[in-house]
Design a protein around this nucleic acid. Structure first.
Length: 685
RNA sequence: GGCGGUGUAGCUCAGUUGGCUAGAGCAGUGGAAUCAUAAUCCACGAGUCCGGGGUUCAAGUCCCUGCACCGCUACCA
């Protein structure tokens, strides 16, 4: 029996705490969309799933920063990102969200299932519980008197005064920071997933998938070689999927465990929407279904190590057939940085350009084997010389010719000469060639193959010189134009996965029936358009982009990223509840100091070992700043240090204080110093 | 520091299990043509295949080593 190929494609769930930029598109979404659109044309039974990842501490932090509830954050970015995707033509069958009940249900089911199987390890400990607030208190949410130095206000993890490391249960007179009441001790537990127990199974699973990209496979083997550790699957937080077990109040399932299950929830939601609620099982509980995760390289461990393990633990589920992880996209030679606003946001792009040129450019430079670089100049060149000059121009010269000399109808295909046959043969092989590339996830190569068809077509047009034959052999001229129309139709289909909007437009110019996205891929290789078929009047398929537009974008990028670093102080102003008393401030003893010596700590990237003079005292300070400051620049500098910080051992070296420095969003450091010369040891207040 | 990846013409990249004078596209130079959004077509590339060792009759392709860049991870009081 020849059943259709069954495929489930997912793209990484974008985190709903910020907008999307071109890097997102290039790595996980565009390649998946091209792959999916191609398979639909090919007739595969394929479903494309995505959605917003809406849990986790980054969302609650973002909400606190903005002074709103987490729900507002996720609503805002879910809608925004969903809209951006739509406008770029991401053809998800469903775009869900992990905050929906259906996902909470999936998360609970999975958790309970492996919990009931006894897979999870419970690590029990006594922890304070706030009866009024109805929650367990993490270490720092408890304060009390330090048992060692009798100082009040010691935190549950350590005493600021004497520097002792504490357990919260050591505190005398503990107080909950949430309600101000005395908490009670209760037995609590967190659950850990013993990934190591599945190590051999995972290795076996990887061994059976030799077709994976080498970097992904090796990366996984690397993890296995190091030994997989137990990993907590619960945490104390109010935002997320509640742990469905008695005695787990105030605990949620850790996002890293639950987010990937969003693929399943989203598929279930899709099945409900199409009125076949059980249909999701055809994909998720079917060993013949190919489950494919498109992600960026930062996500490999979750999709290629942990998720397969969950599915093995749950049993009866389809395991990922492939994880074609892509590398990263840089921008004008630098890393994209959301915090510094160094990015091209999808919405900004769409305000100035149509979606297809970006899809084209990103597909052409897709970071398949290594990090790629997007530059506006390259974008312009690709648009102007490839989309406009080669592809658009071929279609345009063919169709205008048909209108000018053949009344807008497809001329009859007469006798074929060598050039005609060569062109048609090339066309016949193209669907297979292009398709093979897409199936191997080499989108770049696939697009090149498409463009090669257009290049050959231009050459064919030139060689046939229809502008000459129209005068002395109109029949031969007609054959040429007929073939050019056939090629144009094929190009429309070839374009469809990559340039869906332009493909529709071309389909209309050719006056073809039906939805181009429902055509047969293989039909592109055949002669399809009948003699005498009427064509619509030609229109420009792609427009040129002028220099000044590109220059403006480059300038905008520069000014955005630089001005943002000046205005970023608006970002992290603490909420009123976090403010400290003057007494608290006075506890910190800040002093002027002079650096005497500085050298790198061996075998570390960031650590510097500093000797400083504070008044008449010499101290050693270990500072994590080696990446931004050369040690030889430091001796003699006047700096500000925290003099009464408890000493700590870092990499076996004692650090007796802390150097103050301002840190920018991108991690650049600037040391604090004093305006005028002043004696070492001077107090700062 | 540990693990993984990448380093090939000005730019973006191909180079299969090692094998003829290392290949494309774009940009550049020269020419042809004029149907087309001055778009197209043809011709032209003496590149230390990151450096240094090694294996082999033969290495961009395998092994060792060094360097640079990227990601994960540890240290950042």
């Amino acid at each position: 029996m020849s059943k259709k190929e069954q495929i489930l494609v997912t793209s990484a769930l974008p985190y709903a705490n910020g907008p999307l930029h071109i890097g997102h598109l290039a790595g996980a979404y565009l390649p998946a969309d091209i792959f999916t659109r191609y398979h639909r044309l090919k007739g595969s039974d394929i479903v494309f799933i995505c959605g917003s990842d809406e849990h986790g501490v980054a969302i609650t932090i973002r909400a606190e920063q903005d002074g709103v509830r987490p729900q507002e954050i996720i609503d805002r970015y879910h809608e925004l990102n969903k809209g951006s995707f739509e406008r770029f033509g991401m053809s998800f069958d469903n775009y869900s969200r992990t905050s929906l009940p259906i996902h909470h249900e999936t998360g609970r089911d999975f958790f309970l299932d492996i919990y009931n199987k006894g897979i999870l390890k419970k690590k029990q400990e006594k922890q304070f519980y706030d009866e009024q607030a109805g929650m367990f208190l993490p270490d720092r949410y408890v304060e009390g008197t330090c048992p060692k130095c009798n100082e009040e206000g010691a935190r549950g993890d350590q005493c600021e005064k004497c520097g002792s490391d504490l357990n919260q249960t050591d505190l005398i007179n503990p107080i909950s920071k949430v309600s101000g009441k005395r908490p009670v001790l209760r037995e609590t537990s967190h659950w850990y997933f013993p990934l190591g127990d599945f190590q051999d199974k995972l290795k076996n699973y990887l061994d059976q998938r030799p077709w994976w990209k080498e970097n992904v496979r090796n990366y996984c083997y690397g993890w296995i070689k190091q030994g997989l550790q137990d990993r907590a699957v619960t945490r104390d937080l109010n935002w997320g999927i509640k742990v469905p077990v008695d005695g787990a109040d105030g605990k949620v399932i850790y996002v890293w465990f639950e987010a990937v299950l969003g693929y399943i929830s989203s598929t279930r939601e899709w099945a409900q929407k199409i009125g076949q609620p059980q249909r999701w099982k055809d994909y998720w509980q079917n060993e013949n279904c190919k489950l494919i995760h498109f992600i960026g390289k930062d996500n490999i461990v979750f999709h290629a190590v942990m998720f397969p393990i969950f599915l093995m633990a749950k049993a009866g589920y389809t395991l990922p057939q492939d994880v074609p992880a892509n590398e990263f996209l840089n921008l004008e030679g630098r890393k994209i940085s959301t915090s510094r606003n160094y990015a091209i946001w999808l919405e900004d792009y769409l305000a100035h350009f149509p979606p297809d040129p970006l899809r084209y450019c990103l597909a052409a430079i897709a970071p398949e084997t290594k990090d790629a670089d997007f530059s506006w100049k390259d974008f312009q060149t690709r648009n102007n010389s490839e989309l406009v000059g080669i592809l658009g121009n071929f279609v345009n010269r063919s169709l205008t010719f048909a209108h000018k000399y053949f009344d807008g109808q497809v001329p009859a295909q007469g006798r074929l000469d060598g050039l005609d046959k060569k062109m048609l043969q090339l066309l016949a092989k193209a669907p297979e060639r292009i398709g093979a590339c897409i199936e191997k996830y080499t989108v770049r190569q696939a697009l090149r193959e498409v463009m090669d068809v257009a290049r050959e077509a231009n050459k064919y047009f030139n060689d046939k010189e229809p502008w000459r034959s129209v005068k002395n052999n109109k029949q031969e001229c007609g054959t040429t134009i007929n073939i050019c129309v056939q090629v144009s139709r094929a190009l429309a289909i070839f374009m469809a996965p990559f340039l869906p909007h332009s493909a529709v437009k071309l389909w209309h110019l050719l006056n073809q029936d039906g939805d181009i996205h429902k055509q047969q891929w293989a039909s592109a290789g055949t002669v399809f358009v009948a003699d005498g078929h009427p064509l619509n009047p030609p229109e420009i398929l792609f427009s040129k982009i002028e220099d000044d537009v590109i220059t403006a974008e480059i300038d905008k990028l520069k000014s955005n990223s630089s001005s943002e670093s000046e205005t970023k102080k608006t970002i992290a102003v603490p909420a009123a509840t976090d403010k400290i008393s003057f007494a608290d401030f006075q506890k910190v003893d800040l002093r002027v100091a002079t650096i005497l010596q500085a050298e790198k700590v061996a075998k570390t990237d960031k650590l510097l070992q500093l000797q400083v003079q504070i008044g008449d005292e010499k101290r050693q300070i270990i500072a994590g700043m080696a990446e931004h400051t050369a040690p030889e620049d430091l001796p003699g500098k006047t700096v500000v240090v925290v003099a009464n910080l408890k000493p700590a051992k870092i990499r076996g070296l004692e650090s007796q204080g802390m150097l103050l420095a301002a840190e920018s969003e991108d991690g650049k450091l600037s040391l604090l110093t004093v305006e005028k010369e002043i004696e070492s040891g001077a107090k700062i207040r």
